[in-house]
């Protein structure tokens, strides 16, 4: 077992993990943060996207042990975040989710795109979502919702 100290959604967590445990499994099984979904476990689908030290990463492609000393933020850690609130509102009003399984990863990816100023057009948003698979919506409404939230956040951007 490997000892780790990680800040998870703002709170310090000290734990012992089996070295092979992925960050995704640790968050879900060890911390009961089940909003992080595992759908492919090989880095293609994006459902498990979380922030580590402020940047989106695949929780299935990082060992929990390698998270030692990092700050991890999951979908449960955004409840008071204004940009995430705007995104959630836009996803709701634009019908940008159906089954909800990709949604956590979509929201975190979208949050990062807007934060980095990479959501200025529908085409740019679509490229930015290339690593997040949604099987339900056909993407049109997701792109529209992100464009809307980006416009609200920055006063720029155009929808589809």
């Amino acid at each position: 077992m490997t000892a780790i100290r990680v800040i998870v959604n703002g709170a310090e967590v000290i734990d012992n993990v089996a070295p092979r445990t992925s960050l995704g499994d640790w968050l879900r099984e060890g911390r009961n943060l089940t909003g992080t979904h595992l759908a492919c476990e090989h880095g293609v689908c994006g459902a498990c996207t979380v922030l580590v030290d402020g940047e989106p990463i695949r929780a299935c492609l990082m060992l929990a042990a390698a998270g030692e000393g990092s700050e991890v933020r999951t979908i449960e850690g955004f409840d008071a975040d204004p940009l995430m609130m705007a995104l959630r509102d836009a996803f709701h009003r634009r019908h940008a989710l159906q089954c909800g399984f990709c949604t956590s990863g979509m929201l975190i990816t979208a949050w990062d795109l807007i934060r980095r100023g990479k959501a200025s057009s529908a085409a740019e948003i679509r490229r930015g979502l290339a690593g997040n698979i949604c099987r339900c919506t056909g993407y049109t409404n997701i792109v529209a919702a992100i464009a809307e939230a980006a416009t609200a956040a920055e006063g720029v951007g155009d929808g589809e």
Partner: peptide
């Protein structure tokens, strides 16, 4: 608008593995 959205947007849905 959907009543299903809120739990999923908050990451509080309940799928079997959850």
């Amino acid at each position: 608008l959907r009543r299903e959205d809120e739990r999923h947007l908050l990451g509080r849905g309940s799928f079997v593995p959850d």
